[in-house]
């Protein structure tokens, strides 16, 4: 049944990437684009096994670069590195706190953005950046933090909806059978 959850997460990644690509308001008004993948990956890294993190990193990056000028798979390694680090430290993160969720999402947005830029520069591409990119970087990180707050309940809901939940026992589990000494005697 884990497969259904993974599939629904991939569908969420595809739809959210599409929606934020076609929603031109942030670009027109504030001059930056919103990337939903870092925020989604943070939630997945805290809730799902490593295989789901790997699949989402590959699929999310490939589908996102299909809409972009960036070379294909540019964000695979940044996304997976981020997911791996968060997943390995998930025991130490109090992710039920709203503030923590926001900070995690914002850090993820900032990390993926900057590492993708480094990869583009190292692979001899000529991305467009200047002083205004600093504002874009901060704004993208902030929006990623807000998206993390949205994705946490969505992934929880998906988890409840598509995963098999343990059945509630139809009998009183507190009942115990006590064998008395007189039965066998």
């Amino acid at each position: 049944m884990r497969g259904f959850l993974t599939l629904s997460i991939l569908a969420t990644a595809l739809v959210s990437t599409y929606v934020l690509t076609t929603w031109s308001f942030p670009q027109r008004t504030f001059g930056f684009q919103i990337d939903p993948l870092p925020a989604l990956l943070i939630v997945v890294a805290l809730r799902c096994p490593i295989s789901t993190i790997g699949i989402l990193s590959i699929f999310g990056s490939l589908t996102q670069s299909a809409l972009s000028t960036s070379s294909i798979g540019t964000t695979i390694l940044p996304l997976y590195t981020l997911g791996f680090i968060v997943h390995m430290n998930s025991q130490h993160i109090a992710f039920n706190n709203v503030g923590t969720r926001f900070i995690l999402g914002a850090s993820a947005g900032a990390f993926v953005s900057i590492t993708s830029l480094c990869i583009l520069l190292l692979s001899n591409q000529q991305p467009l950046f200047g002083w205004f990119s600093f504002w874009q970087w901060i704004a993208t990180a902030g929006m990623s933090g807000l998206l993390a707050l949205v994705f946490f309940p969505i992934v929880n809901w998906l988890n409840r909806s598509v995963e098999e939940q343990p059945l509630v026992a139809p009998y009183d589990t507190s009942t115990r059978i006590i064998r008395g000494p007189h039965i066998h005697g």
Binding site: T21, S68, P127, T140
Partner: peptide, 15 residues
């Protein structure tokens, strides 16, 4: 009709 913009901030392209 313009239906989208590059999802990353590093390029100036539209769909």
């Amino acid at each position: 009709r313009i239906i989208g913009r590059d999802p990353s901030n590093w390029w100036r392209s539209i769909l």
